[in-house]
């Protein structure tokens, strides 16, 4: 397909055709990852900068490796130890990267909409690596890639997403992407962690985890940040684990071949038991590998976009 999109800010307005194109490219990239020598010259002479206002070694490393495998020049800026910490504003930072000739800016930010703001003011492509509570499109893409690998297709899949939906950009990106690709999404979470009108984003709200898991092809648990307890959103880790966590008993309600997924890092014993995390049907490790493939595909697509202009 002829790729015209400048930025990947989220999946809410990305078409099925575009998602399929990214997933197809990721399959090729995964093949490269399985080779003995992983380095290919696809992005030689291209530069990728990761601009992280929030710490996430995993996601940053995933992008960085993706870039390096494709021979792009990569550099990292994190909130500490750079002008960011000195209070330089976002647009000034972005413009600086732009005039340095950066092709792709991979951005992680604690504020929803920050990549949208940046993208309007830079020529470089902006890939959202997670913005506040809004979206984390590359995570949802790697989730979908993993589901396709295991299930063949997303159409008609029943996906249960459990836990802290309110704060979850992973959940939101999955709602959009999965709905676009024809899957059905069910959610269950403590009522205090269910955002208002979430059904309008294409998530079917269930009162209990059991209801959401019933007959599911995929069970995805979200990370629960334990400090939310202090703001009164739930009473304790143990009550959370009991009612909203995933264990062997609850898993029995899902299809026998249901996949267990988690965006990581896992709070063992809170959102899922250790037994579940290491379960034979857990694809948590493969999600991480697939993350590199998806990010290779995205960097390839976006860094080359300008060649075609």
């Amino acid at each position: 397909m002829n790729w015209t999109r400048k930025d990947l800010l989220g999946l809410k307005d990305v078409s099925a055709e575009e998602i399929q194109y990214i997933l197809d490219n990721a399959a090729t990239m995964k093949h490269i990852l399985s080779q003995n020598v992983k380095k290919v010259p696809h992005l030689r002479g291209k530069s990728v900068i990761t601009l992280f206002y929030e710490n996430s070694t995993r996601t940053r490393m995933s992008f960085e490796l993706a870039g390096k495998y494709l021979s792009a020049d990569t550099a990292n800026i994190t909130a500490s130890g750079s002008s960011v910490a000195k209070g330089e504003n976002l647009l000034d930072t972005g413009r600086t990267l732009d005039v340095m000739g950066c092709d792709v800016i991979v951005m992680r930010h604690n504020c929803s909409g920050a990549p949208h703001l940046l993208s309007k003011h830079v020529n470089a492509s902006v890939i959202n690596a997670g913005d506040g509570m809004n979206e984390h499109p590359t995570q949802a893409l790697l989730d979908m890639f993993t589901m396709v690998e295991k299930k063949g297709s997303l159409k008609g899949l029943k996906v249960a997403i459990l836990g802290d939906v309110y704060h979850s950009r992973v959940a939101r990106s999955n709602f959009y992407g999965l709905n676009t690709m024809g899957a059905e999404v069910y959610v269950a979470s403590p009522a205090t962690l269910l955002p208002k009108n979430v059904d309008m984003l294409g998530a079917k709200v269930c009162k209990t985890v059991e209801e959401a898991i019933e007959g599911a092809d995929v069970v995805m648990n979200l990370r629960m940040q334990l400090e939310r307890q202090k703001s009164g959103l739930f009473p304790s880790a143990s009550e959370y684990a009991k009612y909203y966590g995933l264990n062997e008993d609850k898993l029995k309600l899902a299809k026998p071949d249901a996949l267990i997924m988690h965006p990581g890092p896992v709070n063992r014993g809170v959102e899922i038991t250790s037994g579940i995390a290491d379960h034979e049907r857990s694809v948590i490790d493969e999600q991480v590998t697939n993350g590199v493939a998806i990010r290779m595909a995205l960097l390839y697509i976006f860094a080359n976009r300008r060649n075609e202009e």
Binding site: K12, S112, G113, D131, G132, M133, N134, E135, R169, R172, P195, K196, N197, V198, M200, L201
Partner: peptide, 12 residues
């Protein structure tokens, strides 16, 4: 707080 805050991922 409403549909749009959820849609935009902004606190309502």
């Amino acid at each position: 707080e409403g549909y749009y805050s959820t849609y935009l991922g902004l606190r309502g």
